[in-house]
């Protein structure tokens, strides 16, 4: 059951109102902008974009606002013989789009439409000797790809696949931990809130969160909030709506969401809404896009904003979906 948040978080009365209906319309209109060059230039993000859009709509309580049947048909066409999904039809398979495709299919409860075993083959083929995962067969590695792999396998209930060495994955992630308690994209890489999210998420799913010093990392994460309420991703950088998700979900996994000022963050996200077109931008006054729209809305949901469907802090999918597939006790 998708039950909207009932907790009435202290929402500042003078804060802008939440434009729920406009956001729904904004997301529905995304696929109609074929006269814009931008539409074509972002084609490689189509599958990711669908995940962002569909997830946002679910959290908004409008799960049927997109044509589910059409999306499933489209996704099937994006799957390659090796099991991976491309960012669009005829685009090469990559773990980023593979996770998005699986997330959408699970949200819609339509895993039956694809060959799950092949997806698992694909992901297993990307694990490297040191425990990390490559993004595709060209070999780029990044902790983001580790999270994509572990998240995807966990959603598919295939973490017990014999080809995987998950202890090595944990060891690798731990090697990415820094002097400040945060995590980077690779061993030695600077701490960054989005990389913290993927590493803490991976460790959460793998039951290895004891490698994280929650007080130290929670401190670092809480220092991401700036005076205007927005969150940045690294010290001395600008605020951005998408960090509402990366920082907040990490704090949530560490049971420390209360370490930042929720009403101020809510206000910042609401101010980044586009009152004309709907959608949310990276910060007030900028152009909205579906990426910032979903992470803004997911952030609001995690903050208990009234009227939104609860989101899961690890998987960034509706909580009732994660409950349905039986993964809720894991964290």
């Amino acid at each position: 059951m998708s039950v909207p948040n009932e907790e009435t978080t202290a929402v500042d009365a003078s804060a802008p109102e939440f434009l729920l209906d406009q956001h729904v319309k904004y997301i529905q209109a995304l696929d109609t902008k074929k006269n814009d060059l931008e539409y074509w230039l972002t084609e490689h993000l189509r599958v990711n974009g669908l995940y962002w859009g569909a997830t946002a709509l679910h959290i908004l309580g409008h799960p049927d606002a997109l044509d589910q049947e059409q999306i499933v048909e489209y996704l099937v066409k994006c799957q390659h013989d090796n099991g991976g999904f491309g960012g669009h039809i005829d685009h090469d398979p990559h773990i980023l789009s593979t996770l998005s495709a699986v997330q959408i299919l699970i949200t819609y409860d339509r895993l039956d439409a694809i060959q799950v075993d092949k997806v698992v083959d694909y992901i297993a083929s990307l694990q490297n000797e040191d425990g990390s995962f490559s993004g595709d067969s060209w070999g780029e590695t990044d902790t983001r790809f580790i999270f994509c792999a572990i998240n995807c396998l966990s959603l598919l209930k295939k973490l017990d696949d014999k080809r995987l060495d998950l202890q090595k994955t944990i060891d690798y992630v731990v090697r990415c931990r820094n002097f400040d308690g945060g995590f980077g994209s690779s061993p030695g890489g600077e701490s960054h809130a989005a990389q913290v999210y993927v590493c803490v998420g991976t460790l959460t799913i793998l039951g290895a969160l004891h490698h994280v010093d929650a007080d130290q990392l929670g401190w670092w994460l809480s220092e991401r909030q700036l005076k205007n309420g927005g969150l940045n991703g690294r010290p001395e950088k600008l605020e951005d709506v998408c960090y509402s998700w990366w920082v907040l979900s990490s704090l949530s996994m560490l049971n420390r969401t209360h370490w930042i000022d929720a009403p101020k963050l809510i206000r910042f996200i609401l101010e980044a809404q586009d009152t004309e077109t709907g959608g949310i931008a990276d910060r007030p006054g900028n152009m909205p896009d579906v990426f910032h729209t979903v992470f803004g809305i997911a952030g609001l949901s995690l903050l208990g904003y009234p009227g939104l469907v609860a989101v899961d802090p690890v998987y960034c999918m509706p909580r009732h979906v994660i409950q349905r597939i039986g993964l809720i006790e894991k964290h």
């Binding site: 230039l41 490689h44 960012g87 685009h91 990559h94 060209w138």
Partner: peptide, 14 residues
């Protein structure tokens, strides 16, 4: 030049 993040083209190019 127009779409530097179109990763498939980098793959094709290689």
């Amino acid at each position: 030049r127009k779409s530097p993040d179109y990763y498939t083209i980098w793959n094709v190019r290689r």
